[in-house]
């Protein structure tokens, strides 16, 4: 249940937390997110010492290992700037689970202060930067998959949609059971491959049924899962991170 959120006024500077999946597999999505923020006149700081939020270990029960890695993130976002994360899942981890991880410990206070500065990218664009997008792209039909953590932990499903609806030539297609999980679930996809395969196949069917040209999501885990499955099926539906998609369509190339 997302709490009633309050957003700060537009800051001078923000931190960007890439997430490890973006870092290694989708760097262009991270870069797009940073460029979108920079275009609004806000300086983006990318601490080179960031690694991973710790979620994979935390969700596998390896709590000490997760804490050790979380503390490393705390150490490199020390100034009082908002921390923007291009993932509902990792943002949810840092905003909601960090306080849980350190409850009752000596670090509780500073962890809570850290967590309260964490924002998912789309909510930051909509509520803090109040971004206005001008669509420069060709008409396209898009299906949006909002990750479960973006929808339920961060409560930013509406923000994802609001951004896509600002793009005048994007037709947002609605797939059946859009709230349903795609079956990624981190290690779940590997530990329960049969159930996961069934879920991703149903999700891909629902998306294909809309006639969309493109799948957009704010989370790389879901993109890897659904997109990987669409590719495996050789479906003619490409997939893109929401930040890349928005940047590509609103960024005037020189000349």
């Amino acid at each position: 249940m997302p709490e009633q959120k309050r957003y700060p006024a537009k800051p001078k500077r923000v931190y960007f937390f890439a997430t490890c999946l973006v870092d290694l597999l989708f760097p262009e999505a991270g870069l797009a997110g940073m460029q979108l923020i920079r275009r609004e006149g806000v300086e983006v700081i990318f601490p080179q010492d960031q690694t991973c939020c710790g979620q994979p270990a935390w969700n596998s029960g390896y709590r000490d290992e997760a804490r050790e890695v979380a503390l490393q993130q705390l150490a490199c976002f020390t100034e009082d700037h908002p921390i923007v994360v291009p993932s509902g899942s990792c943002a949810g981890m840092m905003r909601h689970h960090y306080p849980e991880m350190f409850a009752g410990s000596a670090d509780q206070g500073r962890v809570e202060a850290f967590s309260s500065r964490v924002y998912e990218l789309t909510e930051f664009l909509v509520h803090v930067l109040k971004i206005a997008l001008q669509d420069l792209g060709e008409p396209v039909r898009v299906a949006l998959h909002t990750s479960c953590s973006a929808r339920r932990e961060m409560g930013v499903a509406e923000e994802h949609e609001a951004l896509l609806k600002q793009l005048s030539k994007v037709e947002l297609m609605t797939q059946a059971r859009k709230e349903e999980c795609c079956g990624f679930g981190g290690t779940f996809a590997v530990k329960q491959p049969a159930i996961s395969a069934e879920m991703v196949s149903d999700k891909a069917n629902a998306i294909a049924d809309t006639g969309a040209d493109l799948l957009v999501s704010g989370d790389c885990g879901c993109l890897m899962n659904i997109g990987g499955h669409l590719d495996y099926r050789q479906a003619s539906i490409d997939s893109r991170h929401i930040a890349s998609f928005i940047w590509e369509r609103t960024h005037a190339t020189e000349g």
């Binding site: 890439a18 870092d23 290694l24 760097p27 870069l31 990318f46 196949s201 890897m224 495996y232």
Partner: peptide
Amino acid sequence: RVRKPPRIAARTLHQRAREEGFNDR
């Protein structure tokens, strides 16, 4: 089994952020 493997990028975001002039602190 039912997915194409993800492709590892040629350069990480850490590297590209530095190249694109994003400050470290």
